[in-house]
């Protein structure tokens, strides 16, 4: 049966390894979320722009990245990226196969997916900012940067926060797929433990509990952040 000593922190226990792996899951999710934020802001800007070509490109991006399996994007970035790296290295005179670092490949792949979801969140939030406010800011002579910083960004952030919370939850759960690249995050570590102790149930249950702790903890944090950010619009 499930043995708690298995996850102790002594030399024979797997506790420390599981905690390290949890930290890796967090690190790769945060990285992909940041990549997704930059990409998502760019795609949302394209989708809201006046140019028809940019709008079509933005729509195509969100449709495709939300319509194909995340696992496929990870394979594409990991193996495709490795092929590109190998080709570039060959052109520079290096021989043989060069792999793409799994942390980079994983966070980039999840970041690309995250960008598609975040773009939709930012777009919706930007549309929620009343036009009159932007006109008033322009009438006061505010520059584009100042308008973004003082008028758009604070309101977009407050409106987008619940949506971003959902994207973060998706990202946490999706990061388990990065285990296919061999990156030792929570699920990969559990596979290793399951393999060497022949106790798969114990390890996958432990992984499940840790993921549950991560998702529940972040739900609480996002709830608090939302409460803070909506101070000005909350009813007393």
């Amino acid at each position: 049966m499930t043995d708690l000593a298995l996850f102790g922190f002594g030399p024979a226990g797997w506790g420390a390894a599981m905690v390290r792996a949890t930290a890796m899951t967090l690190a790769v999710t945060v990285t992909s979320m940041l990549i997704g934020a930059a990409g998502g802001a760019a795609v949302a800007t394209a989708k809201l722009s006046g140019s028809r070509a940019l709008r079509a490109a933005g729509d195509a991006y969100t449709t495709v990245l939300r319509g194909v399996p995340e696992l496929l994007v990870i394979y594409l970035v990991y193996f495709g990226g490795s092929a590109v790296v190998t080709a570039v290295a060959a052109a520079l005179g290096f021989e043989g196969f060069l792999g793409m670092p799994s942390f980079l490949a994983g966070s980039l792949a999840c970041g690309l997916t995250s960008a598609a979801y975040q773009a939709e969140v930012y777009r919706g939030a930007a549309l929620a900012v009343p036009r009159g406010q932007m006109e008033a800011a322009r009438a006061l002579g505010m520059g584009a940067g100042l308008r973004f910083r003082r008028i758009l960004a604070p309101q977009i952030l407050a409106v987008a926060l619940p949506g971003l919370g959902n994207v973060w939850q998706l990202g946490l759960k999706e990061s388990a797929l990065i285990s296919v690249t061999g990156l030792v995050e929570l699920l990969r570590q559990s596979q290793i433990g399951a393999g060497s102790t022949h106790q798969p149930f114990s390890f996958y249950i432990a992984a499940g509990v840790l993921y549950l702790a991560l998702t529940t903890g972040s739900t609480l944090l996002f709830g608090r952040a939302e409460w803070r950010l909506t101070r000005s619009t909350r009813r007393p």
Partner: peptide
């Protein structure tokens, strides 16, 4: 609902496919 929405699908799949055979 809390457990199944809070954990990755792949963990659930491994738990069912590999995990149950532990017993």
């Amino acid at each position: 609902v809390f457990v199944f929405r809070g954990t990755p699908l792949l963990v659930q799949l491994f738990l069912v496919y590999y995990g149950l055979s532990q017993f």
